[in-house]
Computed example of a mutant assay.
Amino acid sequence: MEYPKSLPETHKQLLDRIVRKIQQDPRIVGIGASGSYATDTLDKFSDLDLVIAVKPEQFESVMDDRFAIVDSIEGKVAAFTGEHVGEPRLIIALYAPNAIHVDFKFVSLPDAAIRVDDTKVLWEQDTLLTDTFETAESKYPQPTPQWIEDRFWIWTHYATSKIARGEYFEALEFLSFIRTVVLSPLALKQANLTPSGVRRIETRLPAFSKKLERTVAKPNKLELTLAVKQCIALYLELREHEVIEKNIDAQKVCIQYFENEIHQ
Rank of each mutant, 00 (worst) to 15 (best):
R151T: 02
A136C: 05
F177C: 03
E213M: 15
P195S: 04
W123D: 00
A233K: 08
F152I: 04
L224T: 04
L238W: 05
D64V: 10
T203E: 13
F133V: 02
R165A: 07
K229T: 02
E74R: 01
I92A: 09
K44R: 13
N192I: 01
K21R: 15
I28F: 02
Q58I: 04
S176L: 11
I69E: 00
E124F: 06
Q58V: 00
E9C: 10
D16W: 03
G166A: 05
D131C: 03
H84T: 15
V253A: 01
G86A: 10
A113T: 04
P145W: 01
L238T: 08
V54P: 00
E170S: 10
D16L: 09
N260K: 04
T203F: 09
R66K: 13
V29A: 08
S161C: 10
K162L: 13
A38L: 06
L109V: 14
P143H: 06
R27Q: 09
V29R: 13
H101K: 07
T127M: 10
S196A: 13
K76C: 07
T41V: 08
R239Q: 15
G86Q: 05
L129E: 14
V228K: 00
E83N: 10
L48P: 04
A187Q: 03
E259S: 08
K211Q: 12
I73T: 13
D47E: 14
Q264W: 07
T203S: 12
E83L: 10
G166R: 06
L186Q: 12
S108D: 03
S209V: 03
T119S: 12
E213P: 01
H84K: 13
D47Y: 04
S184L: 02
L205I: 12
H84Q: 07
A207D: 15
A78W: 15
L50T: 04
L122D: 09
Y168P: 00
V121L: 03
T144R: 14
A68R: 10
D118W: 11
A233M: 05
E60I: 04
C254Y: 03
I154C: 06
D71N: 10
